[in-house]
């Protein structure tokens, strides 16, 4: 049985990581064409990626959109979660459902509908429009993590703080926020990764005038493959790995996934 488990997990690792290894290898290919194993290995395509303004601009756009929208999404999620915290009732639950709705709609349907909203607001083809779309999509992520964090706040501690004369504001800033901070940060970071990678909303709202890195990679494929595309993919992979490693190192990965460790 152990051999079957080992074989199935080895198969899974090969299935999940072979495409990534091929992309990594091809990013070091010397000539312009794609090849694996790489021929005449070189880091020229990395230099090319970071010196080509069309690639660096799209990377910068992605970073601006991801940082801003994940920050906004986290604020909306925090306000929603705190307002709903310790409050029962269908009205409160419907707020949670309403802010999570964009995440639960089929991707293309929400992308089309938010593009109509941004067009009516005059934001089509702007970074602000994409930030609005990403914020709407992402709120559900920090909302889940912040609610997990709030579930860790013991009622007995809140009562003790009240007995000690703490005001509601002091309870929030000195008790609740410190407990939920790791969950808040993790939610924001997950949202950051998803925003960096998101394509469909960005494509619908960008109106051909703003390029994020996924849009740039998608558009570049129309003109044929070259190793710079692999470099772009590896930049993303590295970014995601760094962020996930930080979350894992902060020690909250398991509770964020809803797993109690033995």
């Amino acid at each position: 049985m152990k051999i079957a488990r080992l074989l199935s997990l080895t198969g899974l690792a090969v299935f999940l990581y072979t495409p990534i290894i091929v992309v990594l290898g091809s990013s070091f290919n010397g000539p312009r064409q794609m090849a694996f194993p790489p021929q005449d290995p070189s880091i020229n395509w990395y230099a090319n990626f970071f010196s080509d303004p069309s690639w660096t601009t799209s990377l910068l756009n992605s970073v601006i959109i991801a940082v801003t929208s994940s920050a906004f999404a986290t604020v909306v999620a925090l306000v929603t979660a705190l307002l709903m915290w310790q409050r029962e009732g269908k009205l409160h639950q419907s707020f949670v459902s309403a802010v999570s709705l964009p995440f639960l709609l089929p991707g293309i349907v929400f992308a089309v509908s938010i593009s109509l909203v941004t067009a009516s607001l005059g934001l089509l083809g702007s970074l602000v429009g994409i930030i609005l779309g990403h914020t709407a999509l992402l709120v559900a992520i920090p909302l889940v993590t912040v609610r997990l964090g709030l579930a860790q706040v013991e009622q007995i501690h809140v009562e003790a703080a009240k007995l000690m004369g703490y005001s509601d504001r002091q309870i929030l800033t000195k008790l609740v926020i410190p407990i939920i901070r790791p969950y808040l940060v993790a939610g924001a970071l997950f949202a950051l990764i998803i925003s960096m990678n998101e394509y469909i909303i960005a494509f619908m709202v960008s109106g051909f005038s703003v390029e994020t890195l996924p849009i740039k990679i998608y558009n570049s494929q129309r003109y044929g493959f070259e190793p710079t595309l692999s470099v772009g993919t590896m930049v993303y992979m590295l970014f995601s790995l760094v962020v996930l490693s930080y979350i894992a190192a902060a020690g909250k990965l398991w509770s964020l996934l809803g797993i109690k460790e033995s």
Partner: peptide, 26 residues
């Protein structure tokens, strides 16, 4: 961590990676 890292790849990047893996040249 391996699962999370692989799911961090978007549709565009996943499609591109598999196009390479299923190409004759690479």
């Amino acid at each position: 961590v391996m699962l999370l890292a692989s799911l961090a790849l978007s549709e565009v990047l996943t499609a591109f990676a598999w196009q390479l893996l299923l190409s004759h040249s690479s």
